[in-house]
């Protein structure tokens, strides 16, 4: 009973500040990008806009601190001048916000539902987040290749849906096909603890620690000659082992 009451107040506190942040910060970010747009080109504006979205993610992640904490571990390089394809496991609706740890300019590959979120959906569309289900494979590959060519990294959740039981589902191959065709390095991002903070099917958040472990990139040389299927199988195994290791040390 006492724990339930604490959880209720914790959620009330979080969502109250979340709504305040939406009302105050979103217009401020918009104004900032719109004003700077007047003396910069489209590419710079997009870079600034995506950066503003990362700051939005940082703000949302900061609201429940210290009840919800983040541990980001970087293994290997993190060259912000290069574009990467990030591969993340997906257990919770908060995962999109967790990408705030990345110092890169990036877009996320999503299903259609994030575009339906009031206000934020418009921002996701403007930032050129890609709705993979509504695009043909050819259109998707063309747009994704163009973004990578501009130095924009791409974040995939290749399971396509959130895991119900914590076990990683099988991967769809679009990310790996893109990596093979463009020679872009793949970076696995393993996330644990997110399923406790906000389980699938719930809007209530709970205190906890979310661990994000970034593994070393697989360079194009590492997957020369592999089919997208073989590459996705190898990345799946690497991430599955890493997630098991992370969970055994929670």
């Amino acid at each position: 009973m006492f724990v339930s009451l604490l959880n209720f107040f914790f959620n009330f506190y979080f969502y109250l500040l979340f709504i305040l942040a939406v009302l105050v910060l979103i217009p401020l970010f918009t104004l900032y990008v719109a004003l700077t747009r007047t003396f910069s080109n489209h590419r710079s504006t997009m870079r600034r806009f995506r950066r503003a979205m990362v700051w939005w993610g940082k703000t949302v992640a900061f609201i429940p601190y210290p009840f919800i904490r983040f541990r980001y571990e970087l293994n290997g390089e993190n060259d912000t001048k290069k574009s990467y394809i990030f591969i993340c496991n997906h257990r919770s609706a908060v995962d999109a916000f967790l990408m705030k740890v990345l110092p890169h300019e990036f877009v996320e590959i999503v299903n259609d539902w994030p575009f339906k979120i009031p206000v934020l959906g418009i921002f996701a569309r403007f930032a050129a987040f890609l709705d993979i289900r509504s695009m043909s494979h050819e259109a998707f590959m063309a747009k994704a290749t163009e973004l990578l060519g501009q130095g924009v990294s791409i974040v995939f959740f290749p399971e396509g849906t959130r895991s119900v039981d914590g076990r990683m589902g099988s991967f769809h191959s679009a990310a790996f096909r893109l990596a093979v065709e463009t020679g872009t390095p793949l970076v696995p991002l393993c996330i644990t603890g997110n399923e406790i903070v906000m389980p699938k099917g719930s809007l209530f958040i709970k205190p906890g620690i979310i661990k994000i472990r970034q593994l070393p990139p697989l360079a194009a040389d590492d997957f020369t000659g592999l089919t997208p299927f073989t590459l996705k199988s190898r990345v799946w195994k690497i991430m599955e082992q890493e997630l098991s290791a992370m969970e055994s040390t929670l």
Binding site: S170, F171, H172, S173, R177, T227, P228, F229
Partner: peptide, 10 residues
């Protein structure tokens, strides 16, 4: 076996 529609082409 974990194939998807794109893998069918391969």
């Amino acid at each position: 076996l974990g194939l998807d529609s794109l893998d069918i082409v391969d």
